[in-house]
Design a protein around this nucleic acid. Structure first.
Lengths: 339, 339
DNA sequence: CGAAATCATGTTACCGTTACCAACCTTTCA
DNA sequence: TGAAAGGTTGGTAACGGTAACATGATTTCG
């Protein structure tokens, strides 16, 4: 490998001259497309390697009108959930020549618009984005872009093109079902106050609806702002139980604060799940290993990422209905009484 | 916003025709570059919005020979550490017009080569990549690419261009120092068995060197494969303490397994930090809220991301030496005796 | 054995944008 | 008032590849 301190960046022309064939032939060799004799191929490859040539995808993309990028737009990277989704996307894209490009919106609709605009300006082959709620501008962009668009995580709503996710209403409802079946009746809820977290909102709605059907009302709620952590979970759990000491169940909007609550309750000597039951949401496996396994709902994050990637890559056909609803699976853990 | 179901994608020409000016002028308006009269600007902007035009960065990048992308190459997204770094990078890049593009290597050198090659083929404005150890091919690519290249996390070695990070040798050494100062002498180590995790290796080397200086030898080690979780931490802690019951300190290679170990020890009734001390590494704040605060070293992840981003964006000059060494900060927590 | 098929390579015309320079139109000011 | 200066706009030629077609060489096969 000659380390050529070149001022001018290398182009196909350089490789072409170095190997004595046309640029077109070099291009064919480097992309493994079309017929090229073994001898020529070898010459070209050697020349390319020697020079240290790296193809220019900007030029290639412009010429071919195809770009092997998939835009992935998600609200956050700071909790565990979206990295898991990304993992699913990435693993499924690995053998397709497609590459994910991630944009983060921080749960802000205007950032989402900006990020989408930016992503689309790269003319990707597909778009995967979290949620079904988007600004009018975003919907317009996506409806007319003429690409596979997969909205992930949530299926409670009308997709622009295709949706892959779980029904958060159902997840909430089924958890309520399980809690009621175990005989708990004085139920409290602890969650983030984020108007833009539509999935948390729908989960709570599904949860409360099921309670209402059973003639039960949520006995207390506690909201917090900002990120979720064990400490936040402790703090809110203490607060809600101080305010409403006779609660017999706490439903947390995610596993992290649920785990914090669990630790606090164990320290205080609460009888779990006997006198007090707990449940979270997500199914974060990092937390296996707490003194008790927190009841939770597996949100199918990796599967969602995989299926979405399969659809944008064309491995899997878009379903007629446009919706792929995975089943949120309740993991009972040790913090709900056996019914 | 007219939703034009166009077959042919929109180009500058469409906007130019719709607004009655040249493509060049439209381009100027859309980029805020050069002088354009207010009236023209308004006309163009209206036309662009009406049509729903999104600029084509592929074409723009080719023409201008500039691409507002920064390649970020990291080993993993599945633990907390790299998302934190990314957060730092992203926040610092926000106001620069530069956009991070992430590639994940899964700690595989050959994947790193492939990811780098792929990234460079997009002709980014800069490269940020984890670690100082790279294949010969990767080094060659990066040395000749003529871009800012920032290697992050680690400063124990020779950077290709610039390095921003902490000395893991020093981090290990200082933790050893603190442990010795607190009077612990029978010290065990628990870490991943990953030959490619050079930083963990250097940390341990620094740790052992300091112990050796003090005439102390590592009394036991336990290695594991695969991801870190609370459960893994428990399992390994149990194993090492069963094998070597008289250990008085456990040094974990990260906070997650450290926390698992801590939980296990607390359950078993170990006197912490009296009879047994514990320490991890990273300074993961998600874990604040455990029954005790685990001693750890803040690896300065967010700062590292920020400084790296500042350098590739030109906000901050590359230091003469090529190295920015941040100080790993020990957070004593509650699991080391006060000396 | 000659026409057709196939293989291996080259030629030409873009892809959609921006850099550069020229042209024109105002305004300024000696 | 006329030349210089500055603001505003447009024409043209890249940027570095790839698609599509053309060409010449070689093979296939009735």
């Amino acid at each position: 490998m000659i380390t050529k301190r070149s001022s001018r960046p290398l182009t196909l022309r350089d490789v072409s001259e170095a190997s004595g064939v046309s640029e077109m032939t070099v291009s064919r060799v480097l992309r493994n497309r079309g017929d090229v004799s073994a001898a020529t191929r070898e010459k070209v490859l050697t020349a390319a390697r020697t020079l240290g040539y790296v193809p220019n995808k900007i030029a290639g993309g412009l010429a071919s009108q195809r770009v092997n990028l998939v835009a992935v737009v998600i609200p956050s990277l700071s909790n565990m959930v979206f990295p898991d989704v990304l993992g699913g996307v990435s693993s499924e894209l690995d053998d397709t020549g497609l590459q994910p490009v991630v944009g983060v919106t921080h749960y802000s609709p205007s950032r989402e618009d900006a990020v989408l605009y930016d992503m689309l300006s790269w003319r990707p082959s597909g778009v995967i984005l979290a949620g079904l709620e988007h600004s009018q501008a975003a919907r317009a962009m996506l409806e007319n872009v003429g690409l596979p668009v997969v909205e992930i995580m949530d299926v409670d709503g009308e997709p622009i093109d295709t949706a892959v996710g779980i029904s958060h209403r159902r997840a909430g409802s089924e958890m309520a079902e399980g809690i009621l079946a175990a005989g708990y009746r004085r139920i409290g809820f602890i969650g983030t106050h984020m108007p833009e977290d539509h999935r948390a909102r729908k989960r709570l709605a599904g949860f409360e609806d099921r309670l209402t059907e059973a003639g039960v009302t949520l006995a207390a709620r506690e909201y917090y702002q900002g990120g979720s952590s064990l400490g936040k979970g402790r703090e809110l759990t203490e607060r809600i139980l101080t305010r409403e000491p006779d609660l017999d169940f706490l439903y947390f909007s995610n596993d992290m604060i649920g785990a914090g609550g669990l630790l606090w309750c164990l320290e205080k000597g609460y009888d779990i799940p006997g006198k007090l039951g707990l449940a979270g949401f997500n199914g974060v496996d990092l937390l296996d290993g707490l003194p008790m396994r927190l009841a939770t709902t597996d949100a199918r994050r990796v599967d969602i990422g995989r299926r979405a990637a399969r659809i944008v890559s064309g491995k899997e056909a878009r379903p007629e209905s446009g919706v792929i609803a995975l089943s949120p699976t309740i993991i009972p853990g040790d913090t709900i009484r056996k019914p």
